[in-house]
Amino acid sequence: MRQFGLFYRKEMLEMARSYKWIWVPMVFLLLGVMQPVTTYYMPEILKHAGNMPAGTIITMPTPTAGEVLAQTLNQFGTIGVLVLVLSMMGIVSGERQSGVTSLIFTKPVSFIAYMTAKWASMLTLTAAAFACGYAGACYYTIQLIGSLDVGTVIQAGLMYMLWFVFVISVLLLISAWLPNSAGVAFTTMAFIMLLSFGTSLLSRYLSWSPSRLSTIASEILTKVETLSSVGPVLWISLCSILICVMLAVYRMQSQESISAKA
């Protein structure tokens, strides 16, 4: 537990000194604010686009506040995930590759504390960035489009956050598995995309898939009757997160050589 605190503080400090605490929340804030603002100004933007034949009349149904927020979540799901993966891809593999692990693991340290502290630090950064972006989106949606129901917003936010936790758990596992950071980013992105794609393609069979979490969050906001029951998705997601973290610890512990350079 003491070592967990040490590792966690070190990760926090590293994220601060590499400015991750600034740019990751910034990207999320931008993403979050852009969606309601562009939706609001869309008629203006089109009017000034200039390449429309004269006399074109565009009528667009103004989306509801819930729909705008759901679209924001979609943005988080693509660019947001990419930013998270890129900013944290080297969290384990980078240390192994540089060789600093050979100093750390010759000290009497616990693999569980090391890995769970990394996971917790990823979680902290992700939660802060997501909270920033989501709050920004809510603020501008309320200002420009219409009021939101607080309970629904929080519920959807928590659902979506769980999806992010799943993503970073997968990232931690793959970072512990593969020796280089670029490979980690590629594999994680490929896995997440395949999972999302597969789930929407085979929604009947994969109604329990963790990637349903993002769909459920949107459905909560747009008040659409949900396709799947939420219970199994929640359980499966929580279990897969736990399994990912445990496998990551096991992988670190069981490999032949701790430093990738050995």
Partner: peptide, 8 residues
């Protein structure tokens, strides 16, 4: 590396 436990 084996003495320090870095390598099995």
């Amino acid at each position: 590396h084996m003495l320090t436990g870095l390598l099995r």
